Amino acid sequence: MKSQLYEWKEALKNITFKKCAITLLGSFILAFGLYHVHSISGVTEGGVLGATLLLEHWTGISPALTGGIMNVLCYVLGWRLLGKEFIAYSALATVGFSGTYKICEQFPHLWPGLADMPLVAALVGALFVGVGAGLCVRVGGAPSGDDALAMSISHATGWKIQWVYLMSDLIVLVMSLSYIPVRRIGYSLFTVLLSGQLIGFVQNFNRTQETGADCVTEN
């Protein structure tokens, strides 16, 4: 018990204000985009969200239950592979996302016309998801189970995270063809392709220079 407490104290010492601020910013961007774009566009998602919708269609089990179970399993996997700092930043990202989404719900959608422009919605939605989730992943946190799963697989295999996102999303989207029209899946495929690439770009942008600067500072 004492060793566990010591490990948590050591992990929390590495939590920085800058990374917390980036985590919150990323979760704000993600929640804002999901509410104002994805929630009205009719463009589905891959990963955990798409899987819960698929299970609901074929089994009648609510996403409130299946989503919770899958997210918890993904976070447990992330904790085992990525450590306690991951849990701390992920918890902050989750709170930031939920709080921002709740605030957004108090106001009307900014761009209701996107419901009739699925291609534009797919593009704009991918930008919000890619930048928002990318910022959280960059500092080592995961705002959702999808991100935790992708980070864990990337860490364990060494694969680039954007390709892990693509693989998991494609599996869900192909299975979703069992109840979603091909055209709608096409828009969904476009948005997950773009958002996954953006997450990888944001995660790695200027990483070499930052690492070098940190080393100089430490020396």
Results as ranks from 00 to 15, higher is better:
residue 40 I to G: 04
residue 211 T to W: 15
residue 99 G to N: 02
residue 37 V to Q: 06
residue 147 D to K: 00
residue 66 T to S: 07
residue 177 L to G: 15
residue 18 K to N: 03
residue 86 F to G: 05
residue 88 A to V: 09
residue 179 Y to W: 15
residue 195 S to W: 10
residue 70 M to G: 01
residue 126 A to Y: 11
residue 191 T to M: 13
residue 19 K to E: 13
residue 151 M to P: 05
residue 194 L to F: 12
residue 30 L to V: 08
residue 134 G to E: 02
residue 219 N to Q: 14
residue 163 W to A: 00
residue 81 L to R: 07
residue 30 L to Y: 13
residue 211 T to E: 15
residue 33 G to L: 10
residue 29 I to Q: 03
residue 130 G to L: 10
residue 21 A to L: 11
residue 76 V to T: 08
residue 110 L to M: 03
residue 130 G to V: 04
residue 57 H to G: 05
residue 145 G to Q: 04
residue 213 A to R: 14
residue 120 V to M: 10
residue 178 S to T: 15
residue 33 G to P: 03
residue 11 A to D: 12
residue 40 I to E: 08
residue 212 G to S: 12
residue 166 L to V: 04
residue 129 V to H: 06
residue 53 L to T: 04
residue 13 K to D: 10
residue 208 T to L: 13
residue 78 G to A: 10
residue 110 L to A: 01
residue 161 I to W: 04
residue 82 L to K: 08
residue 49 L to P: 02
residue 77 L to V: 08
residue 137 V to K: 00
residue 110 L to Y: 06
residue 147 D to M: 06
residue 156 A to L: 14
residue 68 G to D: 12
residue 209 Q to A: 15
residue 188 S to Y: 00
residue 78 G to F: 12
residue 39 S to K: 10
residue 129 V to F: 12
residue 104 C to S: 06
residue 196 G to N: 00
residue 3 S to M: 11
residue 188 S to I: 05
residue 29 I to H: 01
residue 147 D to T: 09
residue 109 H to Q: 07
residue 214 D to A: 14
residue 153 I to W: 06
residue 173 L to G: 06
residue 87 I to H: 06
residue 179 Y to A: 13
residue 164 V to H: 07
residue 1 M to P: 08
residue 34 L to N: 09
residue 116 D to N: 08
residue 80 R to K: 15
residue 25 L to E: 00
residue 120 V to W: 13
residue 92 L to C: 05
residue 28 F to H: 05
residue 17 F to D: 05
residue 141 G to H: 14
residue 152 S to N: 03
residue 127 L to H: 03
residue 73 L to G: 00
